[in-house]
């Protein structure tokens, strides 16, 4: 769908579905390539959305990813139904992880995900409620002068 203020696409994520994990980020990357967005921005968006997608697959029961592209920015919003994050400050520290052995065997759960999303984005917001879920809002500006 293409509203006047930009392009919006929504994706559903199924918790525990490792076979499809990453496919949403690949799709977002392909859309950005088609539109002709700068490759360095595409790479940052792809890395951040893949980390967010993996987190949802690993930790949540289910969730949604909204991808919004307008003339100024790219916005990735995620919301999941899951355990939530007890201590967000801790979760934002590199190396802190509550991953299970299974997640580590997948090559993930090193405690790099959330800090890496923040590192690659221009704006990063996280809210979480124990027993309910976690929401991320990740913004990338198309032109650096639009950075707030």
């Amino acid at each position: 769908m293409e509203p006047e203020n930009g392009f919006i696409q929504e994706f559903k994520v199924k918790g525990g579905d490792f076979s499809k994990a990453g496919s949403i980020s690949t799709e977002i990357k392909e859309i950005l390539q088609e539109v002709g967005i700068d490759s360095s921005i595409i790479r940052r968006v792809a890395i951040a959305s893949y980390e967010a997608e993996m987190n949802m697959v690993m930790y949540s029961r289910k969730g949604e990813v909204s991808f919004i592209l307008d003339s100024v920015k790219i916005l990735i919003k995620t919301s999941d139904e899951g355990p939530g994050i007890e201590d967000i400050d801790k979760a934002m520290q590199e190396g802190f992880s509550t991953a299970t052995d299974e997640m580590r065997e997948m090559g993930f759960g090193a405690g790099m995900g959330l800090p890496n999303i923040k590192k690659h984005s221009d704006e990063f917001k996280i809210t979480s409620e124990i027993g309910k879920g976690t929401n991320l809002s990740i913004t990338f500006y198309l032109e650096q002068q639009n950075k707030q």
């Binding site: 890395i47 893949y50 759960g109 790099m112 995900g113 890496n116």
Partner: peptide, 25 residues
Amino acid sequence: MSDVLAFGQPGLILLTGLTNPQSVR
């Protein structure tokens, strides 16, 4: 893969022993 995502640079060749589809992704 967490570290590959955090420290990887475009154009590299990735050496790994992790064979799941996530390594390709």
